[in-house]
Amino acid sequence: MNKRIAALPLIIIIGLGILGFAYAMWKDQAVIKGTVEMGSLNMAFDYVEPPMCAEFYKDPATGELIPGEYEDKDVGQQSCWYEDYVKDTHSGEEGFKTLTIDVTNAYPSYRVHVTFIVHNIGTVVGYLTEYNFEDYGSDEPLTWNSALMAFVNEAGQPVIDIEVTNTLPIQIDPCHSNKMEIDMHFKQPLLEWYTYKFKVTINCVNELE
């Protein structure tokens, strides 16, 4: 025990000696204090201007698309609106995450064009790469087939063709918006006396691969 106590001062002396060596050098330093404030990627349907949907038919004589229904009929009905309100915490900009489209009493060759505004409500540049289409509440839901760009029935037959008229991907800067359009063309296998219900959402990235 006495030997251990006797060794303690020796250890302390050696320890202090080491510390003394370490602190003895002249030194100085430069410090870089960095801050990275991350932005937000947030693309949404426009808060101010609602979507518009309109009927079209193809003129059998000229092939032109003409507003309304063939021979001034009033058979099909369509409506569209936004859902899922969102507010970006950085920019304070508002918008909606979902575009909803209901089409009732459609018939083969019935066409609906939907125009809407996509708004970059975040703080970083974004690319709108594609839309997600979903049949959200039909009695016999259709499945989205991205290869065919169509909703297909259980037999795999295209029921509604979708055309995205804008070239994607498209870059939208923060606080900027683009007017977009999708065209729906109803085909022969669609059901009679039926309401089709669709939801459209946006896929966006901050950088393309």
């Binding site: 330093q29 430069a30 204090k33 990275v36 991350m38 932005g39 915490t89």
Partner: peptide
């Protein structure tokens, strides 16, 4: 992460050349 703030500190220590 979106909307986060990252802080970093880089300390460059220089000593007498013969330390």
């Amino acid at each position: 992460e979106e909307c986060h703030t990252y802080e970093f500190t880089i300390t460059i220590e220089a000593a007498q050349w013969n330390w």
